[in-house]
Each structure stands twice: as C-alpha cells, then as structure tokens.
Design a protein around this nucleic acid. Structure first.
Length: 706
DNA sequence: CATATCCGTTTTTTT
DNA sequence: AACGGATATG
C-alpha cells in the first residue's frame, strides 16, 4: 500500500506519529483523539516501509481491543505472522514455548481468581491458620500486588514485619508452592514469569528482541511494573517501542498499574519522540467542555487541552432521583423518549461504578420491555456450571491440576463426599503421590466407604475415557463431557430455580466451542481451555444488538456511544468510599468519571439518588462533588422527580414510625413519632437538614421512601 | 453421604 | 438482597 495514502487524511500530529519509524515513540492521546486509528495506520505504515509482519508485536489490555486492532489493520493490509494480542495471552504463549528454562512444565494450567482463592484457602489450612481469625480472601490482594511489583515471598516477608504481613508472607510462600505442585500459573504469574524468563535468560531475551523489532503498546498508562519491564526488555536492542496512552485515563492503580510508567517515558528514553493528540473527534463541544472542567481539578496531572471542531451540541443533563429505583425509572423514561425520537437502543449505554448497581437498572429496563445487555459482572466462564465443565477439560489436560480434580470429583454427585476426599488427600500426603494417583489406588486407601469407592470407580472410568478422546473438535469434546457426566440431567433433577439458566449456559458453552472450532480449525481443547480462562465478558459483547448496554465505568474505557448515562453520581459511590481516603484515590475516581463522560458522542445524562439501599440498609448520599465541578451552564438540571412523584401520593395512614419520608421543602427525614388527634394525625419528623418538625399528616404531603 | 436450612458476608473496579 | 459456606438432619 502506498505510504502517502496512509497519511493523507490525518491531522499533522497524527501524521507525525504514523510516519515515525525508528526509535521510541510516546503518543499522548487524549480521549477520542483517534488513537486506534494512529496505531493501526502506523502498523500499516511500517509494513509499507518493508517491515515484516512477524517483526511486529502489538500489545493491548483486553482481547476486545486486540481483536478490534487486528480487524482494522487487516482492512488496510495483509498481516500474516503479526502478533496483536493482550499482555496476558502473549505471555502465556511465550511461556508455553520457553518456561522450561525456568524449570517449569510447559503444560501449565492458568488459574483464575476463583482457583486462586481455593489455593489460598488450602495454604491457610496447611498453615493451620484458624479460620475464625483469618479470611483467606484477605490475602488475595496483597499477594497479587506483590507479584505485580515482582516481590518474592522472601522479600515480602522482609518488608512486612507486622502481624498481618508476617502471616501473609507465609501464606504467599505456601501458595506459591501449591501453584507449583498443581503446575499452575495465576494471572499475575503470566507476567511475572515472563519477566523472570527475560531477565534471567539472555538467549531467550535476545531471540525475542530479534523477532519483535517493533513493539506497540496500547493504554500504556495502565501498565504495571512487570509489564513495564517486559516492554523494556523486549525493546532493548532496537528501541522501537511505541507506547500510546493517556494519563487522564489511568484507572487501574488498584491492579498494580503505575501511572509513572507513562509519565517517565521520556526519562527512560531520552531520545523518544513525543506526539500529543489533542483534537477530539468524538464528542460535542459541550460534552468535552464538561469533561474538561472535571478533570482540570486533578493536581497530579500533566496539562492538556482537548479541543474539537464538532458542533456545540446539547447540554449535559443532570438529574436527581429519590432512590435507586426512581433513578432507574427516570433513566428508562429518558431511554423511551430517545427511542421514540428515533434512536436505536444500541446507541445508548448506562455506566455505573459498581456491578451491584446493575440489578435495579436491569429490572426497570425489563419491566419496560426494553432490550438491554449487561456486560461484565460474573463472566461467562466464571459461572459455576461452565467452570464445572471446563474443570473436566483442565483436569484431563493437566493431571496435576488438583483444584479442578477436586472440583469435579463429586460433580455431579456420585457418592464421593467430604470424608472420602479427605482420605484421598491424606493418602496423597503420606504416600507422596498426586491426588489422581490416590484416586486410582482408592481400594487401598484407608477410610473410604464402599459407596465412595463405587463412585470413585465410576469417576475413573469417566476420566480415562475423556483422557483418551481426540483433542479436536473442541465441541465434541465438550459435548462428550456433558453427556458422560449427565450434567444437564443432574441440573434438571435438582430442579432448583436457576436450573434453566444454568442449562442454557451449558448449551451456550457448547455453541462457543462450535464457533471456536470454526474460527480456529488448527486449535484444540488445550488452547480452548487456555483462551477461555483469559476471556472476559467484554469479549463476548455483541455491539450490533439493538439493546441498551449496561457496564461499569472501568469496562467503558476505550468504547464510545452516542448517548451515555452515568448513574449513581454520589459521594461514596463515585468517588467510592474505599477510595476517598487519599488524594490519589480521589483523583483516580475523578479520572474514572472523566473516562465515562468522554465516551459520549452526543448526549450525556448524569444522575444521582438521594438515598440508596446498600447491604440491605438505607444510605443517604450527597451528590458527588465531581458533579459540582461541571459549570451550571454546561449541565442542565432536570428536576423531573417532581412530576413523576407528586407529593402526597401515599396516604399518611400507611406511615409508620421509622419510615423514611420526603417533604417537598424539608427534603428527607425519618418519622420519629405519631400522635392521633380527634380528626388529625400529627407526625414528628426528624429531617436531615432541617431538624425535627411537627407536621399535620393531611397537609404535609409526605412521600414515603421505602 | 446427601440434602436442607441458616447464617454471615458481601461489593470497587478485572486480565 | 443474594450468594456461598457451614452446620444440622435424614
């Protein structure tokens, strides 16, 4: 393809970036500034310059971003041998080829967060930590953080001398041993082990440096220590490292991301070319101005001015709801009116801070008969029934994976209970053999009932039958598991309420396997298993469906919608309680809000509720301070709850002491006393802002708030 | 050993 | 409010 054509419809900054060939390149790409376009064009440009596709490595954070990038490069040029994939799957792939240099078995299984927790539990048991005092889940985050920062158990122990830290260090150490025994790597290990491999094995590092002469990294502001080192080491010979990112969209520090990586890029590579993309092609002037006025309040920030040639557009709309149900109702009403104005539902998205917020929205949309999709939450491959089936796959693929083995031993129930499992484990420990071997020796293992023995025999038959199956087609393999275990019949028999959903998911797994077969005729059950662990809900999202999209603000990064709703803009939710203690925490929350706002192309709706039901209790939340950072002239207030809820629509007789009520002037309050007079009922209400008032129930027109 | 029931905990965000 | 884990019961 001719190079002039690749440059012609770009602005000058974009052209600078695309036309850069040799040497480090930092592209500071503001929201909506055509970043993906620049990256894909640059790949095409490199190819046009004679760079071989196999010498290029493009790294992203999500499979979706990788797929999108691949698709767009493909539209420009042929790309056999080009690697475009996530950090994690790239690491997995490289480790399969080279991990034996670290003394590990290339047939490792990737353990997800659920598996990890089970191993941590095992570690706690081994260390005899009383469960009343220690929660296994409390160790997950510290261990993960340590790995992200390349801190070994020994170093962790040295750095943490307090009571919790010392215990966590022991758990970490034991957890690592268990991972090894199971021949497993957790998500963090994928990056960590690759870092170790590159650092300790010059010949591998060198070979990969030769292979990947041009490296591109997307969302560089979200890289953690390990990812940073991988980037540095891989690019150490040719220095052709091209990173793209936006410090204002750094929202993953809790996962170990270090914003310093992008801020220090020029220090790391003094010869780096820096390009700033500040023209926004996505949003209206009003939306952009509103978003800018928010992000401006961050102090830890490199100044940047986004601007656009787009039209002024509508003002952002800000509205207040009584509670989360009311908020959902108002959003539904707006959705309906947009729809009748000719908007397809696929134009609309609702973002929120926490997954728990999706439920009310979901209910409201369903009741209104509006199509919706929830992206995120419990990922498909994390659902119990899907994990059960996949555990069979994993147990067969990696016989050392005892987390999976234990999971399936008695699923569906075949008479192998706790006692039998314990006996098998004990035998493994004393005989020094694996759990599977103990299952084989079950007749000789003490403490196993005859019923359990029968079950174990059946299980073994099943296991061996599966182990001898051809690894392709994947769908046949999966179907065989379902048939042979009677998994679906078992669900039907159990007859619990969610059985239908679960059965549906099981069949959906089969169809996922079928499409995998179609799309990857050369791959097998092993690669299917691996890719499924790294798959997320976002990857499965079908954007073409005519439905409102619901997702968290985190997931929204990198996407855009003509119309965006951001719900739950309250202090405590955004910024979230757990992030409000430090300035850095609040700034990250503000960036999260900024990310959400800048997803919108034409319309932006911002809502908050005065009270919210959380953990079964009611919580009164003031509006998010971020809302007030938007100038009045940029956000029009729609005080629509008045029309929707005329006061006094609830007879006072229904009130009880303790009820939360809303008064048109005094706002929210709690009924603290009721006095029945001759003809009237006098209420005593303690208002949150106006103190205690005595009101005539017939006149006060109070609305009860659940 | 399987099933039923209760209790406690959970929820911030995810590859 | 809902799920999973622990406990009691059949």
């Amino acid at each position: 393809m001719d190079t002039a054509r690749l440059l012609e419809d770009l602005n000058s900054a974009q052209r600078d970036a695309v036309g850069h060939v040799e040497g480090p390149l930092l592209v500071l790409a503001g929201a909506g500034s055509g970043k993906t376009r620049v990256v894909t064009r640059r790949i095409a440009y490199l190819l046009a310059q004679g760079v071989r596709p196999s010498n290029i490595l493009a790294l992203t954070f999500t499979n979706k971003a990788a797929a999108e990038m691949r698709k767009r490069v493909e539209a420009l040029t042929a790309l056999r041998g080009l690697w475009v994939s996530t950090f994690h799957s790239t690491a997995a792939r490289l480790l399969r080829q080279h991990i034996q240099h670290l003394g590990r078995d290339p047939q490792f299984t990737i353990f997800d967060t659920d598996d990890r927790l089970k191993l941590i539990k095992q570690a706690c048991d081994q260390l005899k930590l009383p469960s009343s005092q220690w929660k296994p889940s409390s160790f997950a985050a510290p261990i993960s953080q340590a790995k992200n920062r390349l801190v070994s158990p020994a170093e962790f122990a040295r750095a943490n001398s307090d009571y919790f830290g010392k215990t966590a260090a022991r758990v970490y150490d034991t957890y690592e041993k268990l991972l090894m025994q199971n021949n497993g790597l957790d998500f963090d290990d994928l990056l960590l082990k690759l870092t170790e491999l590159l650092a300790s094995h010059e010949e591998v590092r060198h070979a990969l440096q030769q292979r990947f002469q041009f490296i591109l990294i997307d969302e560089y502001q979200d890289t953690n220590r390990a990812q940073y080192l991988i980037a540095r080491m891989l690019s150490d010979t040719h220095h052709n490292l091209h990173v793209t990112g936006d410090p204002d969209q750094s929202i993953y520090s809790w996962r170990g991301a270090d914003i310093q990586n992008i801020l220090d890029f020029e220090k790391d590579f003094p010869e780096a070319k820096v390009v700033k993309l500040e023209q926004n092609y996505r949003s209206t002037q009003n939306i952009l101005a509103a978003a800018s006025s928010v992000i401006r309040n961050n102090h830890q920030r490199r100044h940047k001015d986004l601007w656009t040639e787009n039209e002024k557009g509508d003002m952002a709309v800000r509205f207040e709801a009584i509670d989360e149900t009311d908020e959902a109702r108002q959003i539904v009403r707006a959705v309906r009116s947009l729809q009748s104005g000719g908007r397809p539902l696929s134009d609309l998205a609702v973002f929120y801070r926490t997954n728990a917020q999706s439920r009310v929205l979901e209910d409201a949309l369903r009741n209104a008969n509006l199509a919706y999709v929830i992206v995120g939450g419990l990922a498909f491959y994390e659902r119990r029934e899907v994990k059960d089936i996949m555990a069979y796959v994993r147990a067969v693929v990696n016989p050392k994976d005892e987390v999976s083995l234990e999971r399936i031993l008695n699923v569906p129930a075949r008479g192998i209970g706790d006692a039998a499992a314990r006996a098998l484990r004990a035998h493994s420990a004393s005989a020094g053999c694996g759990l599977l071997e103990s299952v084989r020796r079950a007749p000789d293992v003490p403490g196993i009932s005859s019923r359990a023995l029968k079950g174990l025999e059946r299980f073994l038959g099943l296991y061996d039958a599966l182990a001898s199956l051809p690894p392709r087609p994947v769908a046949d393999f999966v179907r065989r598991i379902i048939d042979a275990t009677g998994y679906v019949q078992d669900l039907q028999r159990g007859g619990d309420e969610s059985a239908d959903d679960r059965i549906e998911n099981v069949w959906e797994l089969v169809s996922a396997a079928e499409s995998y077969d179609q799309e990857n005729p050369d791959r097998d059950i092993r690669s299917f298993s691996e890719e499924s662990v790294l798959a997320t809900d976002l990857d499965r999202w079908d954007e073409s469906r005519d439905a409102v999209t619901l997702m968290t603000l985190h997931l929204a990064k990198g996407l855009e919608f003509p119309v965006v709703f951001i719900a739950g803009l309250e202090e405590g939710l955004l910024p979230h309680y757990n992030s409000m203690e430090t300035e850095a925490g609040i700034e990250e929350e503000r960036r999260l809000f900024f990310v959400g706002m800048t997803r919108a192309r034409q319309r932006l709706f911002l809502s908050h509720a005065e009270v919210r039901h959380q953990f079964g209790t009611v919580r009164t939340n003031p509006p998010s301070p971020f809302l007030d950072e938007i100038p009045e002239k940029l956000a029009q207030r729609a005080d629509s709850e008045m029309e929707e809820h005329p006061e006094g629509d609830e007879p006072a007789e229904e009130l009880e002491i303790g009820d939360l009520v809303r008064h048109h002037r005094f706002g929210l309050g709690t009924v603290i006393n009721m006095e029945h007079g001759r003809a009237e009922l006098t209420l005593e209400v303690r208002f949150q802002r106006f103190g205690v008032k005595k009101l005539d129930a017939a006149l006060a027109r109070l609305a009860r708030v659940r």
